[in-house]
């Protein structure tokens, strides 16, 4: 129905997550209608990101060069390591402006049923970093899901006696109503209540 070039563009766009063929067609027509410099800037941005972005040698976050901007920042506290599942979690924690240590990106969470075992994650690298940095605290910020909790429990066991190991608190989301909270979340909020 379309010329091969347009058909190819639609096919490539439809490979993106959350984009179906119909949305891909809309995007393709938008790109065709847009000024050449705008469309080519998008193509250049995709090419540039694929050519320049790799993973940080220290923490395995996304990096433009051997180290990510956080590991390259001398003001960050290297004795505190926050363990997250994916690079997108680093961005989420950074948005809080509450944390001034460094990160360690595991690359997923333990899930034997999906064939993800400890050797598939960057756990050995974490243990080496804890020794090398003489870390005083490891903050386990894996997701509060079954796989995230299992990963946190596994890492905490491996780090026992080496340094302080903490887990992000769980509880009620700010702005939500108590009556809509599920039992597990509310139960954790209760057990983690604090003095006022």
């Amino acid at each position: 129905m379309y010329s091969p070039a347009v058909e190819n563009l639609i096919t490539q766009l439809a490979r993106l997550p959350g984009i179906g063929r119909r949305t891909a067609q809309r995007l393709a027509f938008y790109i065709l209608r847009s000024p050449p410099d705008q469309a080519l800037a998008l193509a250049d941005a995709i090419r540039e990101v694929k050519e320049k972005i790799g993973v940080c040698e220290e923490c395995f976050n996304l990096a433009e060069g051997p180290l990510c901007s956080i590991c390259a920042d001398a003001r960050r506290d290297r004795t505190v390591i926050c363990v997250v599942e994916d690079p997108s979690d680093v961005v989420a924690v950074e948005r809080t402006h509450e944390y001034h240590g460094v990160y360690h990106v595991l690359g997923g969470a333990l899930s034997p049923i999906d064939g993800v075992d400890p050797e598939h994650l960057r756990i050995a690298e974490l243990l080496r970093r804890v020794e090398a940095n003489a870390a005083v605290e490891v903050v386990l910020a894996t997701n509060p899901t079954m796989t995230g909790e299992a990963t946190a429990v596994y890492i905490a066991d491996r780090l026992r006696g080496r340094c302080r190991v903490t887990r992000l608190a769980s509880g009620l989301p700010v702005g939500g109503d108590l009556e809509y909270a599920d039992e597990v979340t509310l139960g954790r909020a209760f057990s983690g209540r604090r003095e006022m």
């Binding site: 034997p112 049923i113 909790e149 299992a150 429990v153 596994y154 066991d157 039992e183 139960g187």
Partner: peptide, 20 residues
């Protein structure tokens, strides 16, 4: 609606592995 959350199972690596 939760009937049984299995929260204790998820907090125990061994029990969780058996459960999986």
């Amino acid at each position: 609606d939760i009937i049984s959350s299995q929260e204790q199972v998820r907090a125990d690596g061994y029990a969780l592995a058996v459960g999986q």
